[in-house]
């Protein structure tokens, strides 16, 4: 009988906990060298993923989608109807996401996205999630006291605005479509995209600021 036949997952975790160094950088280094020796990893592929997620994939991909929705009502309708299919129209706006649901903020509605069970997030459109999205404070409170959480982000949401929280329990990924601010009527998509924040697409930011953009 081999070692792995009689150990529970919990046992394995406890053993790893006892023997691994506490410093995450050392753990990562050991894991990378082991995977390379096992023939399970090409370090050049790690470099390529890091480069992609450091430079190409990130909130600007989401911002391009939102800006297009603001300027093209037909695209916006398609985006709200079937986000997965609609984002394929934007070359380079994001990588493949299998199941995407876009939810729209209005004068009367605000949306907030969370994943209480792990940290599901539209990586392919917004890049890696912020740490706070993955931490216990946000995950525990976003469903129960979202208005208090929003206050911490500087968003005061009047009681008359309907607040809808989306707990990402399936493989469906949620993206908030924030409202286009007034005074941006003659802006092109690129300029519009420059004022769209990451947090506005998660729902922890609401009123976008035209003065924040690039002229």
């Amino acid at each position: 009988m081999s070692e792995h036949d009689h150990k529970s997952v919990g046992d394995i975790h406890h053993e790893l906990h006892s023997h691994l160094p506490p410093d995450p950088a050392l753990r990562v280094k050991a894991m990378e060298s082991l995977l390379i020796e096992k023939g399970m990893l090409d370090p050049a592929t790690v470099d390529a993923w890091v480069e992609a997620y450091s430079e190409k994939i990130g909130p600007k991909c989401g911002a391009a989608i939102v800006a297009k929705a603001w300027t093209d009502p037909e695209f916006k309708a398609r985006l709200l109807e079937n986000g997965t299919e609609a984002v394929k129209e934007l070359d380079g706006a994001g990588w493949a996401v299998a199941h995407l649901r876009v939810i729209e903020n209005t004068d009367d509605v605000h949306n907030l996205v969370v994943c209480t069970l792990c940290s599901c997030y539209p990586h392919a459109i917004l890049g890696p999630p912020p740490n706070w999205y993955k931490m216990a404070a946000y995950r525990s409170r976003a469903v129960r006291e979202p208005r208090a959480v929003l206050e911490e982000f500087g968003v005061h949401l009047p009681d008359k605005i309907d607040l809808r929280v989306w707990d990402s329990t399936s493989e469906l990924r949620y993206l908030v479509l924030p409202q286009r601010p007034a005074g941006t009527d003659d802006w092109d998509e690129e300029r519009l995209a420059s004022i769209i924040t990451r947090n506005s697409m998660i729902g922890t930011h609401r009123d976008l600021d035209p003065a924040a953009g690039s002229a």
Binding site: E32, L41, T45, W49, Y53
Partner: peptide, 10 residues
Amino acid sequence: RAYGIVRAMS
């Protein structure tokens, strides 16, 4: 590095 490893590993 950790993010890239998880994406790239077999």
